[in-house]
Nucleic acid binder design. Structure first.
Lengths: 243, 243
DNA sequence: CGACTTCTTGAGGAGACTCAAGGGTGGTGG
DNA sequence: CCACCACCCTTGAGTCTCCTCAAGAAGTCG
């Protein structure tokens, strides 16, 4: 459980006891939210960061005409609200897709982290860069692929993320999103997405039902998505030395 | 000139002489490239960062079928190659859209920055968050808008970026991209984009020609784009104190 | 059990793509 | 200096993806 909370850090480098302690003091004040509740709303003054401890969330942008675009799915270990640190108004709304628990990280604590534990600060910097890469891949998918390709890319991306926290997961995994949610993620209507899903089902590339998704042929799906898999850098030699 | 090179930092907070000195030692080895040359190719082992000093560049992802998706335009002051720091292979190719000059930043120098100047490191962190917001807005635009809206959003975004380095710019600005480039940016074909441009031209919302774009009615264009303007946070109080 | 959300299917229309061809422009070499 | 080539812009016609509107079926929660 604690392991999942720091998994984004440990993906880059092992943490010392001091690092772990600093992270724990960073994320104080555990808070739980029910499914459908909001961690924050776009337009608010940013309060700080939230370390997602349990459950899934999604961040979204709402257009003046009411259209909702889902930007990204978050899972345990993700730090929420970082992009809005640079802004006067929160950029995206964050909603709980399942019951969740978050730890609150005050901006002041973040400032102290940069002063007192440069190595951990650098790891947080790396996590941000990883997030940028994921957004870059999403831009590429939305801009260059059709609905089938976008769906395949999204499912593969979520699956690889699930695998990280549970290496024993099989081809099948829990999937709390509705088809409407996924439609908002990949930028198509729910009606059209449904027809795409029917197609992939009858081609026996995937199954989808009962809040559970199974990818039967990941190689074929990766071809459809047109994605290159990304390997994270481990223990980059330029990282400040551990305290 | 030097001013533009640090403009992304000073947008958040004024720099001390020490900060400026640290930044200068950070970006050593000025290199110039001709239009069309590549700063780096996707798939390579990441070498480090590049501070764009003069000219425009674009980063792109290439799909297995040869499709090219342009991710983002970079202008003087932008730090190139940051997302790939977290990866074993460079995520995006970066090509010069005009003659450019870059300064090279070694990963080792970056590590020292985190150890010796936490305030500057935090500013670099904030710049990364700003980049994430821009990508989030691009995901939203690509996912939720039609070609007209995407074009309007792109032009407004580029214009606000141009304004930052040249506050005296009028409605018109230099624009070195071809229609094909813009089509690759907003994820439509060049043929279709051209028809969209004709429409905006005849509606007298914009002009485009001779490597120059003029936005005649930004309010109307902002409506079409469906964008909220974003104000950067100035001098956040959690920043480590200046050295 | 009833209200609600979610999933599914149908039919017609609009936005975007493909293929194709003509004209303009800048650059290069003879 | 001119001829040629490459690239970019423009326009047309036909096709396909995806959207809208609509309504019924199935699942879910109180």
């Amino acid at each position: 459980m604690l392991e999942a909370a720091v998994s984004r850090f440990t993906a880059f480098s092992a943490l010392t006891d001091r690092d772990l302690g600093d992270l724990m003091t960073l994320a104080g004040g555990r808070r739980t939210l029910k499914k459908g509740e909001f961690v924050c709303h776009e337009g608010e003054t940013p309060a700080g960061l939230y370390l997602l401890l349990e459950g899934w969330t999604a961040s979204s942008i709402t257009f003046p005409d009411g259209t909702r675009q889902l930007i990204k799915i978050h899972m345990p270990g993700d730090m929420l609200g970082m992009p809005s640190l640079a802004l006067r108004q929160t950029a995206d709304s964050i909603v709980a897709l399942t019951p969740i628990a978050v730890g609150f990280v005050s901006p002041a604590a973040l400032g102290r982290l940069f002063e007192r534990n440069p190595r951990l600060a650098a790891l947080l910097f790396l996590i941000s860069q990883e997030e940028r890469t994921m957004l870059i891949d999403r831009v590429a998918s939305l801009g260059a692929s059709d609905a089938r390709g976008r769906l395949a890319a999204l499912l593969l991306q979520i699956r690889s993320r699930v695998l990280r926290s549970n290496p024993y997961a099989e081809q099948t995994f829990e999937f709390p999103l509705s088809q409407g949610d996924v439609a908002d993620l990949i930028g198509v209507t729910a009606v059209h997405l449904n027809r795409i899903i029917q197609g992939l089902r009858s081609a026996e590339l995937m199954s989808w039902g009962l809040h559970r998704v199974t990818l039967h042929d990941e190689i074929k799906l990766a071809e459809i998505a047109g994605v290159r898999s990304r390997a994270l850098e481990r223990d980059p030699d330029w990282l400040p030395t551990a305290l």
